[in-house]
Amino acid sequence: MVKHHLFWPVAVLAALLLFNFIYSPDFFSIIVRNGNLYGSLIDILNFGSPLIIVALGMTLVIALGGIDLSVGSVVAIAGAISCLLISKGTDQSAWSLVLMAIGVSIAVAIVLGLWNGVLVSIFGMQPIIATLILMVAGRGVAQLIADGQIITVSSKTYNYLGAGSLAMLPFSIFIVAAMFILVSLLTRRTALGLYIESIGCKPTASRLAGIRSRTVMLAVYMFCGLCAGIAGLILSSNVSSADGNNAGLWYELDAILAVVIGGTSLNGGRFSVTGTLIGALIIQTLTTTIYMTGVPPEITLVVKAFVVLVVCLVQSESFRKAIVARWKTRHYPAEREVKQHV
């Protein structure tokens, strides 16, 4: 069971939840208020939804042996565009206007993903630098779109996306569920998952085996852009405003972290969509736990750093070997050692 790739992520998540349960037993209680469900678990899913969606796209990119640093900037750009378009309209709650704004910003997000994909697959750049370009420039573009201001909108229709509720649950949970099912089906019920793993292992070999690596790469980077765009929409609609400077800040790092904690190797070629979901939930649960236990929010980062380190160390093969070796030598009987030498 220890060998199963989901063992460590699930164990960490369970440990976190157990800690919460011991610390405050009403952590798991869910109450009905105004016809909606409320509770810490619902909050974790709701506030974690943008991160989960970004991390899903990131999983596929990392499985290809790539990385996408630009997701945070794409989140900011998507939010800025949709808020700008809606704020320009006369009736901000009109369905046609909101749908148009969502459509345009999703399209832009996909185009930005395509840009990354073209740089990586056609120009053959290293993914980390290719996406660094958009990461640096994208923040500037988002501020340019918003003219350095925070755009606020008062659209009930748009607000529904990130803050509305459906069947007693926050609407964003349904978006997450839809994306998760989509990615799982695409990668595990079609050959796409196999192609992605194969390209992640060895692009040249996969090309020789007849896989169109360029097309797959382009599609995956576009999908990652799409995910970032959706996350940007959820984030900006949740607070009904777009901040080009701070929206989605450090999202790329949190998303990469979620993917790595979930057991996907940064070297590519092996990935777990469920693991990513658990990884993102670990990060969100950790944040919630820190707030709940009354630890000053300033040291959230310190706790996060230690958790990241511990999770990575636990997953590191050489660390486990070193621990086991030390444990073994310590219990080595002294007489046997002497006998062997004689």
């Binding site: 980062l301 310190v302 050489s318």
Partner: peptide, 29 residues
Amino acid sequence: IIYYFKIQPFIVTLAGMFLARGLCYVISI
């Protein structure tokens, strides 16, 4: 940590970044 435990520098220094930034706030906000 990078050498002995063979963890990618990206992740280790990312954790270092969180740690150092967080320690600042521990001293004072």
